[in-house]
Design a protein around this nucleic acid. Structure first.
Length: 503
RNA sequence: GUCCCCAUCGUCUAGCCUGGCCCAGGACACCGCCCUUUCAAGGCGGGAACACGGGUUCAAAUCCCGUUGGGGACGCCA
């Protein structure tokens, strides 16, 4: 059967075809996500085709739930695919057919050595400090003997016979890379239960899917010579390989669970934006040059080049991710923030229907989100800061009280502060119109008349309004809270000051 | 241990292929200043790196060799 002369994506016969091939044995790891992302960038850059293939041949560990999380993670990141998802387990017949072809051609042979026996030999050799590779015991078996054992039902694996000499390829990231075949042991193609192994399945599928570029992690570097041998034996064109450097933890070791969050969904749940994670991951091991760091997907696609990928592993620095995230939050429309924070607010009982689109307080709500943007690094920061805007039930933060209301504070004793707040309350009650500028004018005029620093009014006012020592500009907050509620909150503070509860 | 890969500020990186423009540029983080009612944001400034040793060359971060260090792979997992 020859491939019909059709192309998907209109790129012509030589069109780029890449694939992301995760095994569904867990969540979508940020390393995997970056591999997918680079494949996607490369496919888009060359108007090629991105294939998604789920390598679910390990029936023991593969789960549907895992497949779902992976798809969900890719979708959330905006990494789309043109073909698939294909499931590798459905192609088992094709994988075996290829292995059998090798057997018939004398390029593969049955091996009856028991797994535990080989394990023992390996351990012994390694204990003696020597490298171990399969000793080809079964390659020396006479054909009659092989037939006899097969007929007797003795279990066997099918091994690919590795030849001699160097296996060299021009890696798109690393340049010329080579392994000598003498370090490779004869590759197991089919397990004793007849199921195909990774190297066989992977190559078989990549040939069938006409994959032109294999872009994957550095951890596959040592599989590459084995796979090249299989491509050659199959008489298929060897694709171009591009091995990406690994993502490392702070200790420079391969990023794993013990370093903290590693799954894409975890980052999503912690309030990172998909575009921010995407941008951050793209910059791990790749740079468009020119000092550009915050790039849109389109800009990345336009600048992407495999040759520009670094050869060195890159440490995942969450602080930088947080910074990029804050940059993206800064130019996020308030409506999107509202959409993301809505469910969180509902969970805390802070949501009301008039905050939703079309609701009476919608515009006000968006204005509050807008005011909070500049000091938010992650989405949950909004939930924290939004509370006193949405509810009158908030506590005075102890640090804020200690700093601005205590007897030792700059403002003097609580009675003096209360007196000041009383005057401020009255003045604000008369301020017309109740705008940011006018309110500021009122407060400053009052401070001047009292011969005091404006700060002595401002800090307690912020505390009265939000319970905090930190917030957006206090006059913005004042207007956002509204006169009526603001005056009530000042009264509440005065009562608190007079209650003797201040430190 | 064997094989392979890698090596520029603490971290991400530009520069390396095509040696001189680099006593090395940007970003995060850190520190300081400005702005300012606070915290941020923003602006300005600061400290901070070519792993080491040889070689080639008039000239090396850049090319070559070695050393050291780090990582990955060594499964009838993928």
């Amino acid at each position: 059967m020859t491939a019909p002369n059709v192309t998907v994506g209109g790129g012509g016969p030589a069109s780029v075809r890449v694939r992301f091939a995760p095994s569904p044995t867990g969540y979508l790891h940020v390393g995997g996500a970056r591999t997918a992302l680079f494949n996607w960038l490369f496919a888009r850059r060359h108007v090629g085709t991105m294939i998604l293939r789920i390598e679910d041949t390990d029936l023991e560990r593969s789960t549907e739930a895992s497949t779902r999380t992976i798809l969900e993670g890719l979708e959330w990141l905006g990494i789309t695919w043109d073909e698939g998802p294909f499931f590798q387990s459905r192609e088992v017949a094709a994988h075996r057919a290829l292995a059998l072809r090798f057997l018939e051609a004398g390029m593969a042979y049955h091996c009856f050595c028991a797994a535990d026996e080989l394990d023992r030999k390996r351990r012994e050799a390694e204990a003696g400090g020597a490298a171990w590779k399969y000793d080809r015991t079964c390659l020396r078996l006479a054909p009659d003997e092989v037939r006899r054992r097969l007929a007797a039902g003795q279990p066997s694996v099918l091994r690919f016979r590795v030849g001699e000499g160097p296996v060299v390829w021009d890696d798109a990231v690393h340049g010329t890379t080579s392994f000598d075949a003498s370090v490779l042991e004869d590759i197991i193609l089919l397990r004793s239960n007849g199921s195909p192994t990774y190297n066989l399945s992977c190559v078989s599928d990549d040939i069938a899917m006409r994959v032109t570029h294999v872009i994957r992690g550095d951890d596959h570097l040592s599989n590459t010579p084995k796979q090249i041998l299989i491509y050659r034996a199959a008489g298929a064109a060897v694709p171009i390989f591009a091995h990406l450097p690994l993502i490392l933890g702070a200790d420079k070791k391969r990023l794993s669970k013990r370093h903290g969050a590693v799954s894409v969904t975890e980052y999503r749940d912690r309030g990172y934006l998909p575009e921010a994670l995407f941008n951050f991951l793209a910059l791990l091991g790749w740079s468009p040059g020119g000092g550009r760091e915050k790039l849109s997907r389109e800009e990345m696609v336009g600048a992407f080049d495999l040759e520009a990928i670094n050869r060195k592993g890159a440490v995942f620095d969450e602080q930088k991710l947080e910074w990029i995230n804050s940059q993206y939050i800064n130019d996020l429309p308030a409506a999107r923030i509202a959409a993301m924070i809505g469910p969180d607010l509902a969970r805390e009982g802070l949501w009301a229907s008039d905050l939703a689109e079309g609701g009476a307080r919608r515009a006000w709500f968006l204005a509050v989100c807008e005011a909070l943007k500049a000091r938010s690094k992650r989405i949950p920061d909004f939930r924290r800061d939004l509370r006193p805007f949405l509810s009158d039930r908030f506590e005075y933060q102890p640090e804020a009280v200690a700093k601005h209301l205590s007897a030792g504070a700059k403002g003097g004793d609580p009675a003096m502060i209360a007196a000041r707040m009383g005057r401020l309350r009255d003045a604000l009650g008369r301020t017309e119109p109740f705008t940011e500028a006018k309110a500021e004018e009122t407060l400053r005029a009052l401070a001047e008349a009292d011969g005091e620093a404006a700060a002595l009014y401002i800090h307690p006012l912020r505390l009265a309004l939000l319970g905090t020592a930190v917030s957006p500009g206090v006059f913005v907050v004042l207007v956002l809270i509204g006169r009526e509620r603001a005056l009530a909150r000042i009264d509440r503070l005065i009562a608190f000051l007079q209650s003797g509860q201040t430190p």
